[in-house]
Simulated assay, not measured.
Amino acid sequence: MQRLIVDMDGVLADVYSQFRKFETDELGAVQPDRDLLGKTEREAYKNVRVYVNSPGFFLNAPVMPGSVGVMEQLNRNYELFIVSSAMEFPLSLYEKYQWLQQHFPFLSWQQIVLCGSKQVIAGDIMLDDHFKNLDHFKGKTILFSQPHNMLKDPGSHTRVKDWREVAHLLLPH
């Protein structure tokens, strides 16, 4: 059975919706989507570090549409692991675990890897929204489209725009 590594933030959890919510709560306005294209989260949101260190940021992030059903199927067809960088924001450790338990209860605690660098992770396939995580990976790589990566050529990575495309690419037809 192939080992599939799936990122959490920006792939399973809609952190951009959270950034928009926090920005609206703080500033009373939201940037147009077109203004986010090609910018890192830190470039796009002035107070991103405040947001991600706020209680509830990770715990209350919306689920990416279509991800739960596809993940249930992937869990039956792959040795599936959720791998999420969490050490930079220590508050996120507990919130990310709780979020996964709430939205993906079919995953066991043994399938959750909360880490610092993903460079130590090995598997056959990695699904992530950041080039920094995909570029070093030795297996097949799938780039999940998010505003920060939309203006970049995916290079050797296969780009998907949503969970319907993930299903088409990774599940039997």
Rank of each mutant, 00 (worst) to 15 (best):
V83L: 07
G116D: 13
L37M: 09
P65C: 09
L74R: 00
E72R: 14
Y78M: 10
I112W: 04
Y45H: 04
I82A: 00
L37K: 09
H103Q: 12
Q111G: 08
F57S: 06
E72V: 14
V30D: 10
Y45M: 03
W109D: 12
L59I: 10
S67D: 04
Q102D: 12
F81G: 08
D128A: 02
F137A: 04
L100R: 01
E72F: 03
V48Y: 03
T24N: 15
L127Q: 01
V83W: 06
L100K: 05
L59A: 13
S117P: 04
V70Y: 01
P32M: 05
E79K: 12
N53W: 04
E43F: 08
R76E: 13
S84K: 00
K138M: 08
S117V: 05
P90D: 01
I112F: 11
N77P: 06
M71E: 07
H136I: 15
R42Y: 11
S108Y: 04
G116F: 13
R42H: 14
K138L: 06
L93F: 10
P105Y: 04
V68T: 13
G38K: 01
Y51H: 11
Q31E: 11
N47E: 03
K118T: 08
L127N: 01
L80R: 00
F104L: 13
T24A: 15
D128M: 03
K39S: 04
Q111A: 15
F131K: 03
W99L: 09
P105M: 12
V52H: 01
P90T: 02
N60I: 03
F89V: 14
Q101N: 14
N47R: 15
M87R: 15
Q98S: 11
A122F: 10
I82D: 09
H130Q: 14
V70D: 01
G66Y: 06
F57G: 02
L37G: 02
V120H: 12
V120D: 11
L107F: 05
V48L: 08
Q98C: 12
L100T: 08
S117I: 06
A122V: 13
L91M: 14
R76C: 08
K21C: 07
F22Y: 14
S85P: 02
Y97F: 13
F22W: 08
V68L: 04
N133L: 05
L74W: 03
E41A: 05
L100H: 06
S67K: 01
Q111C: 08
A44E: 05
S84G: 04
F58E: 00
D129S: 08
S84Y: 04
L134T: 02
N60E: 14
G38A: 07
G66E: 00
L80G: 02
V113A: 11
K132L: 09
R42S: 14
E88D: 12
V30E: 13
D124P: 07
N133H: 11
W99E: 02
Q111W: 06
V83K: 02
V63S: 00
F57V: 07
L114G: 05
K118R: 05
N47W: 06
S108P: 09
L80C: 08
Q110Y: 14
Q98D: 15
Q110K: 15
L27D: 11
E43I: 05
A122L: 11
V48T: 09
W109A: 08
K46Y: 08
R42I: 11
